[in-house]
Design a protein around this nucleic acid. Structure first.
Lengths: 139, 139
DNA sequence: ACAATATACTTGCGCAATCAAGCATTGATC
DNA sequence: GATCAATGCTTGATTGCGCAAGTATATTGT
């Protein structure tokens, strides 16, 4: 038979929870024409100095592969939400900058997402949310 | 500018954490020839009464769509880890049963996964893990 | 009894993301 | 200063999964 392992259940429970969360977030964000992944990109760019990051910094910030970032950025460039820039010091890196309209879209989407996140977390008191954040930060 | 919303950061932090966790788990489980999703399937089947579930029960248990389950099960059937059975009461449902060799594979994989899960959770005391589980259960 | 609706899948198509391979550039070593 | 490895990125092929549509069976209403 099988020995119960609480860590296993915890991990599986979490995976289920967050996959569902992402689906719900995607739905909410779709009114802005962006996906959850795209929102993550915009979020990281927005909080970066000068709203500018290299593609690999972006990749590790959002937990994607380099090629994933390349492909995610293509539609965003066409929508003119981000711009491609060169790095004078190193011709290999191509910087991504959040455009003015990108900032606008981000801020709109942030409001939607913030509302969603608050609602999602509403079963917890803000003290419990702090505890949760602290526990997750150790992993 | 932008008002900091702690719930937003908490949600994004979590999404990043769990996407990374799934990648690591996939890597560990690959020695058994199965993916994380497949392990979830086997896990749910194993703990089901008679190791038997319908496909939609399975789908909701692992957070996938019906078609996702259909496709995930195809290789598992070919590997003879699961078997297709009919429900006498309702000819629409096709039950999935964990085979004997499926149980064997599952138990091997469970050991690997249990080790991984413990390691993953090891930055937290078991008391903290309980707290985490309790907080997540409310979401 | 017979339509109309709902349920349990399966299949075709498409999108998102990965890996492996390739290209361009930079840095390190001899 | 030429070579060789490392880095940053892009592209081609593949996988995983979802959605919409289709099929088969069940249920409900009349």
């Amino acid at each position: 038979m099988d020995i119960q392992n609480p860590a296993v259940d915890l991990v599986l429970q979490s995976a289920l929870l967050w996959s569902g969360m992402i689906k719900k977030a995607d739905l909410q964000l779709s009114v802005h024409g962006i996906s959850f992944s795209e929102f993550c990109i915009l979020h990281r760019l927005f909080q970066a100095p000068q709203h500018r990051l290299s593609r690999i910094e972006l990749a590790s910030a959002v937990g994607l592969s380099a090629s994933g970032v390349t492909r995610l950025l293509q539609p965003l460039e066409k929508m003119l939400l981000v711009e491609k820039e060169q790095n004078a010091r190193d011709a290999r890196v191509s910087l991504v900058k959040l455009s003015d309209s990108g900032q606008q879209i981000y801020q709109d989407a942030h409001q939607t997402f913030g509302f969603f996140a608050n609602q999602f977390m509403s079963p917890l008191t803000s003290r419990q949310q702090d505890t949760l954040a602290e526990l997750l930060a150790r992993l």
